[in-house]
Amino acid sequence: MAMALNIIITGVGGQGNVLASQIIGRAAVNRGYNVTIGETFGLSQRGGPVMSHIRLSENKTCGPLIPPNMAHMVVGLEPLETLRVLKEFGNSETVFIANARPIYPLNVIAGDVEYPDLEWIRDVLDQSAGRLYWLDATDTAVELGGPIMLNMILLGALCSLSPFPLDTGDIETVLTAFLPDSKLPANIKALAMGAELIHRYEN
């Protein structure tokens, strides 16, 4: 690992962004990494954007913000927020895992502005990033019990990529330590489904 592995998780308040980044963080600490996670949430419960910067290093402590265009991986829980990250933090080698299901901003709902065409978002990401995984992960989450499972599905997707320093086993260890037993099987299933979505996308 050069200086640090920089991962961004982006989305909208209520999508489980902060929890997902904490789980990665704990798993990485267990693996001996120096971890720094910068959380930007402000008024996140009020429908605003939420972005976590996760930085893993073998030998140094990183600052809380990833420098511009230096993200290696981006997990996007919402397409518009994913696209927003591209210009500021992406580069031609960045790997994007993007959920395709929009959450409409209030000004879109009100008709003040239009939500960008989803195929256009996908094209821009495709033509700019190193790799793009465009996943219908919200549908999978609803099948698994509700939209709240989305973050675990995308965590599973992230951990199944190669190279990535953590595997789903590392995540399961963390989940086992702090999730109640009754919630564990559904979350572990969601991790597996995330890996499955990546596998299907690649083939």
Binding site: G47, L86, P105, N107, E114
Partner: peptide
């Protein structure tokens, strides 16, 4: 990216839950 994305993206305004 600017050449692909000429206009600003719509902002995500805060709102009540």
């Amino acid at each position: 990216v600017n050449s692909l994305m000429p206009e600003d993206l719509p902002p995500r305004a805060f709102g009540f839950c």
